[in-house]
Amino acid sequence: MLMCLGQFAFTTDTLTFTEIQRQRSWQYADNAVATGRKKRQFIGSGDDNISLPGLIYQEHGFGNRVALDDLAAMADTGQGFVLVDGSGYLYGVYTIDSIDETKQVLLFNGVPRKIDFTIKLSRVDDDRIEQQTGANT
């Protein structure tokens, strides 16, 4: 298993991504000072976004195109899901923002032999995870 998002497991049978792109930011308020540089005050964590680009070659046993529909159904709920990788590293709780897919090399009946996809996730606060991991201690 590469990673789990809620109960959805990323494996070679379902979906495999080629990399994990994570972008985190922090927020500051700027305060003007009469003589000198402005002062910055830390006001909290900003966005935490993850992109998972990958490929599906279903006829070669690499992914399943129906798995994208399973993730879309999860996104339709509007809920956040716990994201954890195969080593047990807990990323936090994320919502599914978008799923981009490109179907290529179509057969005569319209079935794609290759699908490129990108899943975009955004972290949401979940007090239950923070309490269990001791993030606030």
Rank of each mutant, 00 (worst) to 15 (best):
Thr102Asp: 12
Thr35Phe: 10
Arg24Asn: 11
Asn49Cys: 08
Asp125Ser: 12
Gly86Asn: 11
Asp126His: 04
Lys39Cys: 06
Leu5Asn: 07
Leu68Tyr: 05
Ile115Arg: 01
Asp85Ile: 00
Leu5Gly: 11
Asp85Cys: 03
Thr137Arg: 12
Gly54Glu: 09
Phe62Cys: 11
Ala32Tyr: 02
Thr137Asp: 06
Arg37Lys: 15
Thr95Ala: 12
Gly134Thr: 08
Asp116Arg: 13
Ile115Tyr: 08
Tyr91Ser: 03
Asp126Asn: 08
Asp70Thr: 15
Leu121Lys: 01
Phe117Thr: 04
Gly92Val: 01
Ile99Asn: 04
Ser122Glu: 06
Tyr28Val: 07
Phe108Trp: 13
Arg113Tyr: 05
Ser87Cys: 05
Ile115Ala: 07
Ile43Leu: 11
Tyr57Gln: 12
Arg65Phe: 14
Ala32Glu: 09
Thr118Ser: 15
Glu101His: 12
Phe8Leu: 02
Gln7Pro: 00
Gln132Ala: 14
Cys4Tyr: 12
Glu19Phe: 02
His60Arg: 15
Leu83Ser: 08
Ser122Met: 03
Asn64Gln: 14
Ala29Gly: 09
Thr77Val: 01
Asn136His: 13
Gln27Arg: 14
Thr16Ala: 12
Leu107Cys: 09
Gly88His: 04
Phe81Gln: 04
Thr14Cys: 06
Thr137Cys: 01
Asp125Asn: 08
Gln27Gly: 11
Tyr28Gly: 07
Ser122Leu: 02
Ile119Met: 04
Asp69Gly: 12
Thr12Leu: 13
Thr12Lys: 10
Tyr94Leu: 03
Ile96Lys: 00
Ile56Gln: 07
Thr12Ser: 13
Gly110Cys: 06
Met74Val: 04
Gln58Arg: 05
Ala67Val: 05
Lys114Met: 13
Thr77Asn: 02
Asp100Trp: 10
Glu130Met: 13
Val66Cys: 01
Gly88Asn: 03
Leu71Val: 09
Gly86Tyr: 03
Asn136Cys: 01
Lys103Asp: 15
Gln132Trp: 06
Gly88Thr: 02
Gln104Thr: 15
Ala73Leu: 12
Ile96Cys: 09
Lys114Asn: 03
Asp70Arg: 10
Gly134Pro: 05
Gly110Val: 07
Phe42His: 11
Thr16Cys: 07
Arg37Ile: 05
Gln132Asn: 09
Asn49Glu: 14
Thr95Pro: 00
Lys103Ala: 15
Lys120Asp: 14
Phe10Arg: 10
Tyr28His: 14
Thr14Ala: 11
Gln41Thr: 10
Phe17Thr: 02
Phe117Ile: 01
Phe8Asn: 06
Val84Tyr: 03
Phe8Gln: 02
Ala29Tyr: 04
Leu2Lys: 08
Asn136Phe: 11
Leu107Arg: 15
Gln21Asp: 13
Gln23Cys: 06
Arg113Thr: 15
Ile99Glu: 08
Leu106Met: 08
Glu101Trp: 11
Met1Thr: 13
Lys39Pro: 04
Lys120His: 09
Lys103Phe: 14
Ile99Thr: 03
Asp97Tyr: 06
Gly44Trp: 10
Ala67Ile: 03
Ala67Pro: 02
Ser51Tyr: 00
Asp48Asn: 14
Met3Ser: 07
Gln58Leu: 05
Thr95Val: 15
Arg113Gly: 08
Gly86Phe: 02
Thr133Asp: 08
Gln58Tyr: 09
Leu2His: 08
Ser51Thr: 14
His60Ile: 13
Arg40Cys: 04
Tyr89Ser: 10
Thr118Ile: 04
Val105Ala: 12
Gln58Ile: 05
Thr14Tyr: 09
Ile96Tyr: 00
Arg128Gln: 11
Tyr91Asp: 03
Leu90Cys: 15
Ile20Phe: 05
Leu83Met: 05
Leu90Asn: 13
